[in-house]
Computed example of a mutant assay.
Amino acid sequence: MRRTGTTRRGAFTATGALALGAVLAGCGDGPGRGKDSARSGAATAAEQASAARAEERIRTAAARTGLELLGGYEQVIRAHPATAAGLSPLRDAVRAHAKALAPADGQAPALPRSRAADAEAGLKELAAAERRAADAHLAALMEAPPELARLLASIAAAGAAHAYLLTELAKETSS
């Protein structure tokens, strides 16, 4: 005997049909067509210019963060040459990230001085700097356009991994 009434499959089909209808209804002529197109075109151009300035500002700040981090790696490697083997791959990744973020007219910032007396302290300082950089990149995600947001998220994830690796390298160095 066949059950009558509404089935789960029927409810899903009806919901899907309603959703498809709503999507198709939204694809018609919008306010950008016809007599309002000049006004909306000007607003769109202004919005694009504003978005481009915001992206440039975010890129500049993120690149500055990356270059400062790169300078920290260089200082620790210079002060403690025994750490060069472990830090070189991470430093190279940070250099690539800074290059990917750098705007066309990017300039190198002044590098902070390391206060670390030994290799372990230098590595812990770098790990903290990587965490701060990752946090800064994550904070910038909310304002960034989609393509830049994906790049920042990827670099933030790499920074978190670098912080973990640096922490582990500091533990090994102390032994």
Rank of each mutant, 00 (worst) to 15 (best):
M1A: 13
T7G: 13
R9C: 09
R9A: 15
G10D: 14
T13L: 12
T15G: 08
G16S: 09
L18Q: 07
L20I: 15
A22M: 13
V23S: 08
L24E: 05
G26T: 10
G30W: 04
P31K: 08
G32I: 10
G34T: 06
G34S: 11
K35A: 15
K35Q: 11
K35S: 14
S37K: 13
S37Q: 11
S37V: 15
G41V: 12
A43Y: 10
T44I: 07
A45V: 14
A45H: 14
A45R: 15
A45F: 10
A49D: 12
A51R: 15
A52Q: 14
A54D: 12
E56Q: 14
E56I: 09
R57P: 04
R59Y: 07
R59F: 05
A61M: 13
A62M: 07
A62K: 02
R64D: 15
G66V: 02
L67E: 02
E68Y: 07
E68T: 13
L69S: 01
L70C: 06
G71R: 01
G72W: 00
G72F: 03
E74R: 04
I77H: 04
R78G: 07
A79Y: 07
H80A: 08
H80G: 06
P81S: 12
A85H: 14
L87E: 02
L90N: 00
L90K: 01
A93L: 08
A93F: 04
V94Y: 01
R95M: 08
H97F: 07
H97W: 05
H97Q: 15
A98Q: 02
A98P: 00
K99W: 12
L101G: 01
A102M: 11
P103T: 11
G106I: 08
A108F: 06
A108W: 05
P109M: 09
A110V: 10
L111D: 08
L111V: 15
R115N: 11
R115M: 07
A117I: 06
A119K: 01
A119L: 05
A119D: 02
A119C: 07
A121G: 10
A121F: 03
A121D: 05
G122Y: 01
L123F: 05
L126F: 03
L126A: 03
A127V: 01
R131Y: 04
A136I: 04
H137C: 04
L138M: 10
L138I: 09
L138P: 03
L138H: 08
A140P: 00
L141Q: 06
M142D: 10
E143R: 11
A144P: 02
A144V: 04
P145I: 08
P145E: 12
P145Q: 12
E147T: 12
L148H: 06
L148A: 08
L148P: 01
A149T: 07
L152Q: 03
L152K: 01
S154W: 10
A156I: 01
A158Q: 07
A158S: 15
G159C: 04
H162N: 03
L165V: 00
T167W: 01
T167N: 02
E168Q: 04
E168A: 03
A170H: 02
A170G: 11
A170T: 03
T173F: 12
S175P: 10
S175R: 14
S175M: 12
S175H: 14
